[in-house]
Design a protein around this nucleic acid. Sequence first.
DNA 1: ACAGCAATGGCAAGCGATTGCCAAAAGTTG
DNA 2: CAACTTTTGGCAATCGCTTGCCATTGCTGT
Lengths: 333, 333
Amino acid sequence: MNTPRRTTIYDVAAEAGVAPSTVSRTFGNPRRVNATTREHVLRVAERLGYRPSPLATALQSGHKATIAMLVPDITNPHFFGTIRGAERRASEAGVTFILGNTEESAANERNQIERLDHSVDGFVLAASRMSDETTVGIAQSHNLALVNREVDGLPGVVVDSGPGSWQIVEHLASLGHRSVVYLSGPHQSWLANERWKALRSAAERRGITIARLGPFPPKVSGGGAAADAALVSGATALVAHNDLLAIGVLRRLAERGVGVPGRVSVVGYDDIFGADLCVPALTTLAGPEDEAGRVAVELLLRKGSLSTAHPAPQRVVLPAHLVIRDSTGPAAP
Amino acid sequence: MNTPRRTTIYDVAAEAGVAPSTVSRTFGNPRRVNATTREHVLRVAERLGYRPSPLATALQSGHKATIAMLVPDITNPHFFGTIRGAERRASEAGVTFILGNTEESAANERNQIERLDHSVDGFVLAASRMSDETTVGIAQSHNLALVNREVDGLPGVVVDSGPGSWQIVEHLASLGHRSVVYLSGPHQSWLANERWKALRSAAERRGITIARLGPFPPKVSGGGAAADAALVSGATALVAHNDLLAIGVLRRLAERGVGVPGRVSVVGYDDIFGADLCVPALTTLAGPEDEAGRVAVELLLRKGSLSTAHPAPQRVVLPAHLVIRDSTGPAAP
DNA sequence: ACAGCAATGGCAAGCGATTGCCAAAAGTTG
DNA sequence: CAACTTTTGGCAATCGCTTGCCATTGCTGT
């Protein structure tokens, strides 16, 4: 890895017989330099294999062309889509993409932000675990875009679980279910609370009994306890916080010989990879996760550009739709 | 996002009544400054909320404390294990982690490397699509660590598909299969060739007929064509390049009413999330993907430190093991 | 032909650290 | 106590690029 010193604007300038500032402008502010000169400089730069140093640029101009995305659990397939979408959009925009895992911890999240602070233009916070106050505080000095989390005044994108949750309840109701439980995710998860609220209000409207159980870790391994608790409750339909949990529930149910959807129906959220692979295939609320990732990055980028003339939408809601598979069926009599 | 100008070593220096260089040393070379002074500086820095700027540091010292990982397809769950492992290790080492998607293209891979060149200390290349020559060329001026790819003289980690492939063949042979096909991944995939070689030699040793079909895109969607081709071949056992492809194959087979493992057996590689969810559950070669990610980063970090005294192992081979599930069974008579 | 301007290029001062070199202070040694 | 070594802190150059400001140059209009 011997470094033969990289080509700098000075090298190019010398070779092209112009001042370094001219070279700099050629790249960063082309209209500021005469077409002929520009061409010439570009040619020389090309020949010398010049590459601008993002570091030096960032240090001087403050423009880092880099964003970071923080997810609570990089393991969770649910985030794959969002990560993918975000990475794609960033890459398209020529922005480098930093990925961080917060291990479901708000403290960890803060630290990462703190650490990366100097190195990025902004953060995409997916399913942030931080409190509203903390988040607002951070937003004071940082560019943020939230995914699946709403905080007053902050830009973000959510996959709409409201109408989605209603769809779930309607579906269940139409199958004759009268008693439903929601197997909740972490209590500090905004999403968990949102889903619960939506489910409850939908259930009330339909005159259906609904209860919240948990919290359960939103992983396959959380399914055991969740299933057992649900069974005790006597509900005929279980709505899990996410597909991972739902799959865990399905497993446990199979172990215990509880028929799905014969005895109970199971619904998940997210439609992750694998949801249609398990048996019975999982009925789940599918959202455009990729899109969410894209949009979040978009919001961040837009905010950067000072197009205050055309204020970008600060809050985007993406529609979700229920994918009905085999894990839901008529309520047992 | 108004930036009230961040605290710099100068601020700290002024406040603490020392020179900026002392502040710098306090952080970067603590033993160079008197304990008392150090304590004092640290206290002041703390009070002022000083955070070093990685950019400035990198610009001056060349030490970026950042690595990038490039994967061919961020979509593929297979890579998430590796990504996770790599991210973890990087994070533990206080190194920031950049993730890039190369979309299965060697050219894209080169570009990304070029772009990130100035910003990182090294690259983890997962299942790189670049030719050996190109890779060696790049290694001349960049720090590289390869995952599931071997290039002479370059450090890397592979999940050992050799013995693994033998296990597959043994398993199939013991079930009475005499004719096997390998449903290959992309031809420029080193892994695909490696697997093929291992399978073939194992098959020969066992006196089993084996053929290579493909290439097929290593995705679920590639499974249709792969399954059809395999059926025509008349083989009783299909070994797919990876689980995604295997799952696609399973689907197609089910569509066509071909019993698995009744009529044919199917084996995959990687044991991705979902492999045990599908029906029949997939027999597959499981490797420690997380570990591979960790190790790759480790190699990169080690190379950075000039511990030439204790030359780090340049090539790590991780063992794989066959997970036998329901997609393999006795050969049809 | 001349004031008035816009376009273009150069100068030099940063951005926030690191680090080689030097000098002052402190500690050792016989 | 003189002579010497080790610690410790400061100075200032440097990393590669951006950008405000100034000086030229060449047009324009009248």
